[in-house]
Design a binder for these strands. Structure first.
Length: 674
DNA sequence: GTCGCAAGGCTTTTT
DNA sequence: GCCTTGCGAC
């Protein structure tokens, strides 16, 4: 298919800064992939001089595949296509000396971060969960805004601010001494480094001669600074974004960065992509009308010349079990009548836990499905265990990981031993691992306790030596010598669960093997790198069977951004779910607007049909609630909706009347503004 | 030091 | 409703 005029000019404009305002389904990925090809084939760039960044692993993977398909793997080799965080990790890895970091640092995921903060702030916050959450968010915001603990402390006004800033400082000191970085550091450190160090900045400007950024509306302050530093005054870059699809403001994304670009680069070329190639006219119209309820940074009008299409179905179910059954039943009969593939269907939801029931029903009906995103895999105890082993193996100072594995499987090293070891290590300013070798003469431990501890750490020490030369081999040794499979069988509630766990561990091992080996597009990694990539959930997957597999796609709406499906089902179109209860409670219009954008993103994933589902009853934290249908349903053009009453015995006339009465109620309850 | 049970309390979304 | 945490028994 030929590019349209707007797309073509977005591809061919390479001499300066370029902002592409790309509405949903307007072919932005095509623009990016074609532009990369154009840069290489026409403008004489080498692949390794071009970097393209996105926000999610899924999007990065998708882009890699599309680019490889356009250019061929040979020409695409060396291209840097990754998430912001992986790019940051890469910069830190190469510049670790300038940053005064050891090369073997490990990464904290948000759970590690929370656990450490909880421990560190216990004297100040008294384990108050709300305060702890606020602190976590605050630290993240400080890091996003490039504010050091020192500065935070200086500018703290209230008593609470001072305590938070103090905790921030403690946290920073502690993470540095553990030789770990958190996710925000991966952006913050490179940004600070490039701002402060001219030599390093020039090195990266030399290396990355052209930068492309997808989902630009999701950048936060430090990410924007990082972009500015990399592109420098040459300003050879293209950013692609859509303020209507900004759904990450809760983690610091500033859609205003789109407007800032005009200020910072006065010669910015702004190109609008307004033709939608994805959805039926009806779906597009519904999406446009919904999003028109939000204020806009940039004006754009999406149009398409695809046929009208079917009405948008609205299912009302009695409760959430019913909802899952209804949606699956709809899907099965649709597939049967239309003779389609499972992989053309997507079931989207607001929060991860909503997948549970759907999974159950899909399983009962033996329908193949794939859940993407979600933390399910890495949240599993067996995966966390092995990850902790790998982290200690590469970074012996990672006490958090050390504590997780020191007694898993059981080694008779209990809380008393660890308490004493912890105190001793603290007094010596040492890691738990290293302190274990020096604690003997102090007599703090009984000989039995010391024996158990040292047997473990000596073994670990040998293993990490082994890991330096033969990383994959050493991981195999690790798994066999702790007899992990048997441990899993002993501790699992059932044979089946144990088999599942063993499979998960094997999966991790397989991925690890692939990452250490590399492939046509990726260089082989060190064990440290591979472990850090895992923490970022950014692993090399042998794509073939994954891609071809005919499976129904399950994911959150957040995870679905940038993807498209023929037939889309959205669950839980209810007040309290979408919009989420928190955004209703706080009574801030911006929060509802973000929820509306989320609904917009969900709706615009659909190419051919869209089905929206809500329940009349739902169990929430143990009690039964009766949620109202989402206000967003009332905002959609009602002529394009096919409201189906929950009772099949209703005549169409009754159904219509009920629907209309319901709507009147909704409209009275949620009057449109303006 | 380990295991099992009961009570309490809640992550929305991702790297 | 489910998962984590705390406590008591062995």
């Amino acid at each position: 298919m030929k590019l349209n005029d707007a797309q073509q000019s977005a591809v061919e404009f390479v001499t300066g800064p370029c902002l592409v305002l790309a509405g949903a389904g307007s072919g932005k990925t095509r623009v990016i992939t074609n532009k990369i090809a154009h840069l290489i084939r026409v403008c004489g760039y080498e692949a390794r001089q071009i970097a393209a960044v996105t926000f999610t692993n899924k999007a990065a993977r998708e882009m890699k595949e599309r680019v490889a398909a356009t250019l061929g793997k040979k020409e695409a080799r060396g291209l840097l296509i990754s998430t912001f965080h992986t790019l940051g990790l890469e910069i830190i890895k190469r510049e670790h000396k300038v940053l005064e970091l050891k090369s073997n640092f490990s990464l904290f995921d948000d759970q590690d971060q929370l656990a450490l903060l909880k421990e560190l702030t216990e004297p100040f916050l008294k384990e108050d969960k709300t305060l702890l959450m606020q602190l976590t968010n605050r630290i993240s915001r400080w890091k996003n805004d490039i504010i050091s603990p020192k500065l935070a402390l200086e500018s703290a006004l209230s008593q609470e601010d001072k305590i938070f800033a103090h905790c921030y400082q403690l946290y920073e000191t502690q993470t540095r001494s553990l030789n770990v970085l958190d996710f925000d550091d991966l952006i913050l450190l490179p940004t600070k480094l490039l701002i402060e160090n001219q030599e390093v900045r020039e090195r990266w400007q030399q290396k990355i001669k052209y930068l492309l950024v997808d989902e630009y509306q999701d950048t936060n302050t430090s990410q924007y600074q990082l972009i500015k530093m990399i592109v420098g005054t040459r300003a050879r870059f293209t950013v692609v974004g859509d303020d209507d699809q900004s759904i990450y403001s809760w983690r610091g994304a500033q859609p205003q960065n789109m407007a800032l670009l005009k200020r910072d680069f006065p010669n910015l070329n702004v190109i609008k992509l307004e033709q939608n190639y994805r959805s039926t006219a009806r779906i597009l119209k519904a999406a446009n009308i919904l999003i028109a309820n939000n204020p806009h940074l940039f004006d754009k009008k999406l149009f398409c010349d695809i046929e009208q299409g079917e009405q948008i179905k609205v299912l009302a179910s009695k409760n959430e079990e019913n909802e899952a059954e209804r949606v699956v039943a709809e899907l099965i009969s649709h597939r049967f009548l239309q003779n389609t593939d499972y992989k053309q269907y997507a079931i989207l939801y607001r929060s991860n836990h909503q997948s549970r029931l759907i999974e159950k029903v899909l399983m009962q009906n033996r329908i193949p499905y794939k859940i993407s995103g979600g933390t399910s895999f890495f949240a599993r105890a067996e995966i966390k265990d092995i990850m902790a082993y790998l982290r200690v193996l590469t970074n012996s100072e990672d006490d958090t990981a050390f504590l997780r594995i020191v007694n898993t499987p059981r080694r008779e090293i209990g809380p008393t031993t660890l308490q004493k070891l912890g105190e001793f290590a603290k007094s010596q300013q040492k890691s738990l691992f290293s302190a274990s070798f020096d604690i003997g003469p102090t007599g703090l431990l009984t000989s039995r306790q010391l024996g158990a501890l040292q047997q473990f750490t000596i073994w670990l020490d040998k293993l990490s030596e082994h890991a330096k030369n033969e990383p994959l081999e050493s991981v195999k040794t690790l798994l066999t010598s702790i007899n992990y499979d048997s441990w899993l069988f002993e501790t699992s509630p059932s044979q089946k669960a144990a088999e599942m766990r063993v499979r998960n561990v094997n999966q991790l091992y397989e991925w690890l093997g692939e990452m250490l080996k590399g492939d046509e597009l990726e260089e082989p990694m060190t064990l440290t790198q591979a472990v850090n990539r895992f923490t970022l959930r950014d692993m090399l997957e042998r794509g073939e069977d994954e891609q071809d597999a005919d499976q129904v796609q399950l994911m959150t709406i957040h995870a679905s951004k940038g993807l498209e499906f023929d037939f889309v089902y959205i669950l839980g179109m209810e007040e309290g779910i979408m919009p989420h209860q928190n955004s209703i409670d706080d009574n801030q219009p911006e929060l509802i607007e973000e929820e509306r954008r989320l609904a917009y993103v969900g709706i615009t994933r659909a190419k051919k049909t869209l089905t929206l589902s809500h329940c009349l009853e739902r169990r929430s934290m143990g009690e039964v609630i009766k949620p109202e249908p989402s206000r967003f349903l009332a905002e959609l053009p009602q002529d394009d909706l096919d409201w189906e009453s929950k009772k099949a015995k209703d005549t169409p006339q009754q159904r219509m009347e009920k629907g209309q009465a319901h709507l009147a109620m909704l409209k009275a309850k949620f009057p449109k503004k303006g």
